[in-house]
Design a protein around this nucleic acid. Structure first.
Lengths: 152, 152
DNA sequence: TATTGTTATACTCTATAACTATA
DNA sequence: TATAGTTATAGAGTATAACAATA
């Protein structure tokens, strides 16, 4: 009952991330593409907002979106009155593929979690819910910080 | 108290993985390099074993190890009597950098988890312990399956 | 002047196919 | 023949720096 506290959280996330990459390969998506589609699932976003939310540079977003456009998974559209901004939107095909990806990934993660007893299996999955909440709150806080910085 | 069950586990892992990449950038490591160092922390391994454990091809391992050797973080050594096999070992510098990486990554994940209340924060971190256990068991099962396949 | 998005360029990781050395 | 590791090559993601168009 001791020897539990020296878990290295980063290493666990690193291994889970690789499992995710392999699962996404089955639906021909990269981790980066999956992240972009996941954000767009909640609605279209400007390229710069995508870059901000993902923590990558704008040239990176250009590249990933180029690939998704080529496959018909997203579309670029003018957005609002600021003619510099370009919105990115999920197509029906993109939405469908994202659903397939979610299912495949969940299947894979469930298969791994199946190694655990029922109690710890529930802990593992509920832990991810907690992380989601934390990530959402953290993103909101960073956004608020950026906005108040701009106001200065 | 409803609206809790539609969490998409893959998306959470995808976002955590990006947070990890950013944190590792602070110590000049990629996710793949961190994974390799993490395995070697438990002891030297042949290149093919690394490929197996990480779920990547052998050429990929050659490339990642090349980069780590160039930076003096790992070394290649002949291993055992089979002169085809090449063992990869952590250097003291590699071990030190890995420790720094673990610390930086943990700092970042803790910062994100700090958005949660104490209870859910504990859930989140203990959930990762459960995932570690699951990943270990799953890896062991795959290894056993491969061995019994070879025996046929 | 500042911002949005892109282009140009370079580095890393990934994969497949072909090769060498060893078994 | 089969296996361990490498080389060759190509595709994707990342970054920085420089540029165009717009604000």
């Amino acid at each position: 009952m001791a020897a539990e506290q020296q878990v290295k959280p980063g290493r666990v996330v690193a291994r889970l991330a690789r499992a995710l990459e392999v699962a996404l390969g089955c639906v021909d998506l990269t981790l980066s593409q999956y992240r972009v589609l996941g954000i767009l699932d909640a609605g279209g976003e400007a390229a710069s907002v995508l870059a901000d939310k993902l923590g990558v540079t704008r040239p990176s977003i250009t590249g990933v979106v180029d690939g998704l456009v080529l496959r018909g998974l997203v579309e670029r559209h003018p957005e609002g009155s600021d003619r510099r901004r370009i919105g990115v939107l999920l197509t029906p095909e993109g939405r469908q593929l994202l659903a397939n990806a979610d299912a495949e990934v969940e299947r894979r993660l469930t298969e791994i979690a199946a190694e655990l007893g029922a109690g710890r299996r529930r802990d593992a999955l509920e832990g991810l819910s907690s992380w989601q909440e934390a990530l959402d709150a953290h993103r909101a806080r960073k956004l608020a910080a950026r906005l108040s910085e701009v106001a200065s």
